[in-house]
Nucleic acid binder design. Structure first.
Lengths: 196, 196
DNA sequence: GTCTATATGCTGATAGAC
DNA sequence: GTCTATCAGCATATAGAC
């Protein structure tokens, strides 16, 4: 594609999104000004409005992209039919994927209240679609007699909360590798649903 | 104690704290103005500064009080020496106590980044003291051969994340009572640490 | 595509009247 | 103890020059 002289739109756009994500994660959506985002990118505040209609849309786009990418990545995972293997794969996938994107995860979980009602509803649909992936596994295992899950919805929420919690304390410099953490959590998850 | 005519300080103070907690939980610390808090209470913005030196102190006091109350309430629980019973009691206590104070819990977990460095450090000490209560139980059970917890710190964080997660989805109008949720979660926690 | 300049309004906090 | 009035600054978003 031809590009006009002096045009930076193909690089400035992503830079704005990256800067906004980092700042929203660190300080919170309401506490970050458009001027701060612009300063991080190296442009003036007015220039941001070439790439987003307003601040709210910027937040929504970041959250929507994160959840869409998450769903696509999980659906691209090679998984078999065995409930035990599927649950273990989900637990490991969830932790490793989330540990790789701490800022996006943080914003997607903490800034739900900063969304307008319409945008919140759209994000909720994506979040539920992801939860349903896990609930299907738990139901399948329960039906097969492999898991003991008296309430599959409750167990789904419990497992996801436990797995996502890793992001609140994990530090790259710590004593455990992501792989090790993922394995230890996968074991706890399996036991929690009744696998000895 | 004698009280001056026209003085409302003994009622306005708590009202300010209650309004601030509710608004901070709903919209986030940075998104709530002192004028909004004052309007909720029914006074003018300037009057708030008779009860708090600034907005930051108001947030810190709310978080500190919540964690101090939480620790005191747990320490007042009657618990025996059996690791199995102690862990079950902790899980049930954590869920029931937290479900009763959704706003305080929400603020204490979501607004950590809104604290100054000094205040953050003081809150972290309280939070760790509470986590240590659970870790002691897990270590005791591991030593007694009742639990299978290869990494007690990791298991502590996993269990707390799972239990606290209830607050993100529980609704009073829902199909499950707090007692029922607490029991179901206690079972999952016990299984997660290796109790059959 | 980015800049500067600007509009309109809200922010936390303080001073002084009552 | 509460009010009104106010300060100085920063917010989002837009208009028009280059």
């Amino acid at each position: 594609m031809a590009r006009k002289t002096g045009s930076h739109s193909d690089i400035t756009g992503p830079k704005i999104r990256a800067a906004a994500l980092r700042l929203f994660a660190r300080s919170g959506f309401a506490a970050v000004s458009m001027r701060q985002i612009a300063a991080e990118v190296g442009v003036q505040a007015g220039a941001l409005y070439l790439y987003t209609p307003d601040k709210q849309s910027l937040l929504f786009d970041l959250m929507q992209s994160h959840l869409q990418d998450l769903l696509a990545a999980w659906r691209a995972q090679p998984i078999g039919a065995d409930p035990h293997a599927r649950l273990k794969a989900f637990a490991r996938f969830h932790i490793l994927y989330h540990l790789d994107r701490p800022d996006a995860v943080f914003v997607a979980y903490m800034e739900l209240r900063s969304l307008t009602a319409d945008n919140f509803a759209r994000i909720e649909i994506l979040r539920r679609a992801y939860e349903d992936q896990l609930e299907d596994i738990l139901r399948q295992g329960q039906a097969a007699g492999v898991f003991q899950v008296p309430d599959s919805k409750l167990a789904t929420l419990a497992v996801i909360a436990m797995l996502t919690g890793v992001n609140t304390w994990y530090r790259r410099e710590g004593r455990l590798s992501p792989e090790r953490v993922a394995d230890l959590y996968a074991d706890m998850v399996l036991r929690a649903v009744g696998v000895p």
